[in-house]
Design a protein around this nucleic acid. Structure first.
Length: 490
RNA sequence: GCUCCGGUAGUGUAGCUCGGCCAAUCAUUUCGGCCUUUCGAGCCGAGGACUCGGGUUCAAAUCCCGACCGGAGCACCA
């Protein structure tokens, strides 16, 4: 086969490789791929942001191109940026192994946008419009130009300068891009490029009053940065159509665009950054890294591996359907990676004291990991703790095994007393336990808090992901003198 | 209402450009079994989908038409 048709063999191989990663990008010849992820830093990055970060950076990597992180932070009113969030994005990118080759902050490049705005006005491609929004809407619906559309450029420039100087109040004037007032699609008729917002911007303060809309700012930036491929939400489909008018006015070539549908995590339902922010400020959550939240900060704190999240989003790819994926998929992926690393420990939730008759003190030698010959030593007096869940299923006369310690026969339930058995039997239910001198453990989970007791060595695992046997994986978040706080992974 | 986009198992996803090798890939979930001094781990196995109708064709998940269902935009939000 190889001899007869080497090309065919090569082609087949390519096809197989493709399955593993992202689909190929449509490419112009000799083109250097430049991708961007352009969030508004009005909160911490969520799983949705992770998709953008990962897919864009992965494409850049696939083609030896460039990945740009651009902060589209030009709305100081409705989507007001958060000063801390800029750095958070940088941290999250680094964590996801997606460090940007370049970082651009739109609010620091306002003068650039003003230049292009002026150039467009001079070309007769944009005009200052004084129509109140509802008045313009009726013009738009009737497909007729508003009176300001035909004003000469000298007067237009003057109005524009006044806009910049703050002569007008909010909503008094906007700069519109000329498109086609007769366009079939009302969304495309003379859209707004700048509006007046006399608000303080967390980064540049009150320096500017005329702010570009996303459509304008991102159109200019995408060209200036040499973006070759844009992936954006399909709700922004119209954006492209609007921006194309601008590109035509300026004689620019529009990047290739791909659209993707909304992604929703079944467990979290709908969440918007603004909504999260409100709730956090209201104190409903402990912060942006509260384990109940779908933020990257929270997932990191819970001990998710960045590779897991990368693989997850690469496997989902770029499709236009709206999807609702379950965290279970992410858990399954993460479990594979984490299982090999995590040391095992005992933790019992809602502990119940079990008295061992005839016992003085015991020493258990327990495996740290089933596939490694490392041990942890657990000492206990003649009482141990078992979990409330196991206790609820216990009957007098039953034999159980305290893992790595001994087999016991339950003699009575109330009080809970057991007799140590010398010869171990087969097919005995095996449960975990905690020693009499155990340490208090609090586990913060997405769906609540568990309290219990664990073996003291847990305190030595600060920052690590470990497995609490028969419970789940957790990351040891903080170690206090008498208490350990763990975040539940899955 | 107008404009547009999409529909492959419970959930994601591959295949669609260029029809045949598709009785449709992979993962996850579910179910069954096995193993083990843990498990929500591991191993083995099973189940489960081309929205519907018509057309083109020797041949349709793939091309065409229609219906249905779902989603989006029509903002001085991103």
């Amino acid at each position: 086969m190889n001899r007869i048709a080497p090309d065919l063999v090569a082609e087949l191989k390519v096809k197989e490789e493709r399955k593993a990663g992202l689909p190929e990008l449509p490419l112009a010849k000799d083109e250097k791929v430049v991708m961007r992820f352009a969030p508004n830093p009005n909160g911490a990055a969520t799983l949705g942001s992770a998709r953008g970060i990962i897919v864009n950076s992965e494409y850049a990597r696939m083609y030896g191109g460039k990945f740009i992180l651009r902060f589209d932070d030009t709305d100081p009113l409705l989507k007001r940026p958060m000063l801390e969030a800029y750095d958070w994005y940088l941290e999250d990118c680094a964590w996801l192994d997606a460090e940007p080759d370049e970082v651009v902050v739109a609010s620091e490049r306002m003068d650039l946008y003003y230049e292009y705005a002026e150039a467009l006005i001079k070309r007769g491609a944009a005009y200052v419009c004084f129509c109140p929004a509802d008045v313009f809407k009726t013009y738009k619906e009737q497909k007729i130009p508003c009176p300001h559309r035909t004003v000469g450029d000298v007067e237009n420039i003057e109005s524009w300068k006044n806009m910049l100087k703050g002569v007008y109040e909010e909503k008094e004037a906007v700069l519109r891009i000329k498109t086609d007032m007769a366009s079939e699609d009302p969304a495309l008729r003379d859209w707004v490029a700048f509006r007046i917002l006399k608000r303080e911007h967390p980064r540049v303060g009150k320096k500017y009053v005329a702010w570009p809309t996303l459509d304008f700012e991102s159109a200019i930036e995408d060209h200036l940065l040499g973006i070759t491929h844009i992936i954006r939400g399909k709700d922004l489909l119209k954006s492209e159509k609007r921006q194309r008018f601008l590109y035509d006015h300026l004689g620019w070539k529009y990047p290739i665009t791909m659209l993707w549908g909304k992604i929703k995590m079944q467990e979290f339902g709908k969440f918007s950054t603004s909504e999260l922010r409100k709730r956090i400020e209201r104190g409903e959550y402990e912060g942006w890294d509260d384990p109940r939240l779908p933020t990257l900060k929270a997932l990191r704190r819970r001990g998710f591996l960045p590779e897991t999240i990368r693989k997850f989003f690469i496997s989902i790819g770029v499709t236009q359907t709206d999807i609702a994926v379950s965290m279970k998929n992410l858990y399954a992926e993460n479990r594979k990676a984490v299982d090999a690393l995590a040391s095992r420990y005992f933790f019992v939730r809602n502990p119940k004291e079990l008295k061992l008759k005839d016992g003085q003190s015991f020493v258990a030698k327990a495996l740290k990991h089933p596939s490694r010959k490392e041990y942890r030593v657990i000492r206990t007096g003649n009482t141990v703790y078992i979990s409330g869940d196991d206790f609820a299923k216990l009957n007098a006369g039953q034999r159980i095994r305290l893992k790595f310690l001994c087999d016991v026969d339950i003699e009575s339930i109330e009080p809970l007393v057991a007799k140590v058995v010398e010869t171990p039997a087969k097919d005995v239910p095996i449960i975990q336990w905690a020693p009499s001198e155990g340490i208090k453990v609090v586990v913060k989970k997405p769906d609540g808090i568990d309290k219990g007791i664990g073996e003291p060595l847990i305190a030595s695992e600060l920052g690590n992901v470990v497995q609490f046997e028969r419970y789940g994986f957790v990351r040891i978040d903080s170690v206090l003198e008498k208490e350990v706080v763990a975040y539940f992974t899955h």
